[in-house]
Structures are given as structure tokens and as C-alpha cells.
């Protein structure tokens, strides 16, 4: 959990940050959410039934990307659905911003498959170098939930497959939308 996160973004609003990361957002100066988080989250996320719904009294005004301190104090919330593959992924909310952290997931890549990219930022924990080098474990994403949005984001992991032991395989698909005929947003992590 250092300043070593690699963030890549493509698009008009690309800005390089001090710690070598790039994001595409309303407020590119924001720090990666876990940069100053105190402790690594637990591996298992809480059961959804014990959490407040992610969209409970979600504000409709646009606000800047939360700060690291705000993320640290953010409560875990329940997405609309969470599948077994995402049982280790925790969802947090600050104002209209959502952060999904899959801290134990070996993360090969995080890709926008389609939809809104404004405000999206992705992180992958760096792999450890040297003789006990390990695969990067821990992927995170942050995006705002705003009326009119729709986005589909995929996290790939590594596993044995058609390209050998380090084949990029499907791990998690995040789908978020709040179309203007919907009263509330939908967030599914499967």
C-alpha cells in the first residue's frame, strides 16, 4: 500500500499525478483511496443483508472525488447484487462515489468494457519484486454514480489457460447504471 500504484487512463482528461498514477475524472488530484487507509480490509466482505444499500439517500448533486481520509471513514455498503466470485470485494460509498476494493484478488487487468468513463479510476496493487515475488493481488476501482450513467467494468485475473499459467481469465464484472427512467441506480458485482 504505497505510492507505487499504477493507474492508467486513456482519454482527454488524462492527468499525471505526483505518485506516477493517471486517472480520468472530475478531479484528477485525488489520491488513490487506499493510499492512506490504515489497515488492509478483511478478506471476506460482510454479508449484504447486514449492510446499508449502496444507494440509500444517494445525493444527486455532483461532488469532487473523495479524499483518502474520506474513503478511510467510508462505511461498507451493499451493492444491488454480489456474486460468489466477488465475495471478497467490498463496496464503499462517499457521497455519490463508489469504491470497490477486491483486496485479495490476483488482478491482471481492469478494463472498461463500455459506457461512462468520466470519473473512473482503477488501481492494481504492485507485485512484490525479488525472490519472493508474488502476483499482484488487490484491484480497486472508483467511479461516481450519477443519473444517466451506465458502465461495465471487467477485472481479469491470472490462471492456467490457453496462454499458459498466466492466462488472463474472467474474474469479476461490475455493471452500474442509473438510466433516467430508473428511480434508483443499480450496481451489480458478479
Amino acid at each position: 500500500m504505497s505510492t507505487n500504484h499504477r493507474i492508467v487512463a486513456i482519454g482527454a482528461a488524462v492527468a499525471l499525478l505526483a505518485y506516477g498514477a493517471v486517472s480520468l475524472g472530475d478531479d484528477p488530484a485525488a489520491a488513490p483511496p487506499t493510499a492512506s487507509a490504515t489497515a488492509k480490509p478483511d478478506a471476506e466482505a460482510a454479508p449484504l443483508s447486514s449492510l446499508a444499500a449502496f444507494d440509500a439517500s444517494i445525493p444527486t448533486e455532483t461532488s469532487p472525488t473523495p479524499t483518502a481520509v474520506e474513503w478511510r471513514d467510508a462505511p461498507e455498503v451493499a451493492p444491488t447484487r454480489r456474486g460468489p466470485r466477488a465475495s471478497g470485494c467490498k463496496t464503499y460509498r462517499v457521497r455519490e462515489w463508489i469504491r470497490i476494493a477486491c483486496s485479495e484478488l490476483v488482478t491482471a487487468s481492469i478494463a472498461t468494457l463500455g459506457g461512462t468513463v468520466q470519473g473512473n479510476a482503477y488501481w492494481i496493487d504492485p507485485q512484490t519484486e525479488g525472490k519472493d515475488a508474488k502476483l499482484p493481488s488487490g484491484g480497486e476501482m472508483v467511479f461516481p454514480v450519477r443519473k444517466g450513467d451506465r458502465r461495465v467494468i471487467q477485472i481479469l485475473t491470472f490462471g492456467p489457460g490457453y496462454e499458459g499459467p498466466l492466462t488472463q481469465l474472467p474474474a469479476i464484472v461490475v455493471q452500474e447504471h442509473w438510466l433516467d427512467d430508473e428511480e434508483s441506480p443499480v450496481l451489480t458485482i458478479l
Binding site: 487487468s109 463500455g114 492494481i124 507485485q127 499482484p136 496462454e163
Partner: peptide, 20 residues
């Protein structure tokens, strides 16, 4: 309601992914 695929949308790859 599904967005159309865009070839150049935001993506982040780990360094191992890039290498392999």
C-alpha cells in the same frame, strides 16, 4: 441499454499482464 464496445476505453494492466 448496453453501451457499445469502444476499442480504446479506459484500461489498466498490471506489469505482468503487459509482459505476458
Amino acid at each position: 441499454i448496453a453501451p457499445l464496445h469502444q476499442g480504446n476505453a479506459l484500461m489498466l494492466r498490471s506489469s505482468i499482464a503487459k509482459e505476458t
